[in-house]
Write a protein that binds this DNA or RNA. Structure first.
Lengths: 151, 151
DNA sequence: GTCATTTCCTAGTGCGTCACTAGGGTTTCC
DNA sequence: GGAAACCCTAGTGACGCACTAGGAAATGAC
């Protein structure tokens, strides 16, 4: 029950764009370096984000990516859905045809409830929220370092 | 972000045991047939459930599996953790060593919150709850059929 | 106008995991 | 003794993940 690196990287990249994109387009190279990700791989994640209308691209030198909307109008759920498909713990919850025992299947209720909660959390957190958290704890925008406060 | 068939099948099997296990041990064969699962595969899922102390096994003819505790004392989360490992959307939330940027990583907060909600839902649903739901909607204990009420 | 920078597109690849299948061995009831 | 059941280990095909690779096209700086 894991989100893949696709999802995690995409969120990290969008957060980076939210933090740095005020002045102009941010190149993938810069995002990848700051967040410690593979540039070529991240490049591939930007394509669906652009097609989905979450970011705009500026080609050529001094180009890069910019958020297409305000950080407050983009949720983590929005980002995840683009690169990972529907937020759903099992296929039959988002696609009724995926299972022929969908009707009258008790366990299906579990997954539907779980899905609803997951969506609730993920859609309630926006990129603006992440920026606010980063501002409160300054080390957060850097790839590593900071105080050791693990629980 | 999916639960594997391991998790789903294990929950279905435990539900079946909760429904039918009052009178005596239920063989894997019967569970597999009722739930429409591969017998040999399900057999392999029962092993960890037994080792974890969620079910007891009775060997030999007329043997099978019985819940080791009352259905009300076994949550869906208990079952999932046994066959799928820790309930966690990303490794770094359950294992701090999994990521070297755990400290001061803004996105980590997302996954921690998500994890907490998932655990909340999964641990709040017991096998007894599933049995009660099945009783309310009788078709639910059968592998297929029932009224077509898809949303 | 050329050159560096950057996005854009497609294809390949090693690896691991998932969902089983297979072949037995051991225990127990009838 | 035989059938029914659990128990253990090993294999296997398919798939997706996490990249790497090789370019083509666009654009700004000079």
């Amino acid at each position: 029950m894991r989100v893949s690196t696709r999802g995690r990287y995409a969120v990290m990249a969008m957060f980076d764009l939210a933090m740095r994109g005020e002045v102009g387009p941010v190149p993938v190279k810069a995002v990848a370096e700051r967040q410690g990700l593979s540039e070529r791989y991240l490049e591939q994640l930007m394509a669906p984000l652009r097609r989905a209308g979450l970011v705009r691209s500026v080609r050529g030198a001094q180009g890069g990516y910019v958020l297409a909307r305000s950080p407050a109008a983009i949720s983590v759920g929005d980002v995840l859905r683009v690169v990972e498909g529907p937020i759903s713990p099992v296929a039959c919850v988002s696609d009724p045809k995926a299972c022929d025992r969908t009707d009258g299947c008790v366990t299906r209720g579990i997954w539907r409830r779980l899905r609803d909660r997951m969506v609730e959390v993920l859609d309630s957190i926006t990129l603006a929220d992440l920026c606010a958290e980063a501002a409160a704890e300054p080390a957060a925008q850097e790839p590593r370092g900071g105080t050791d406060s693990r629980a």
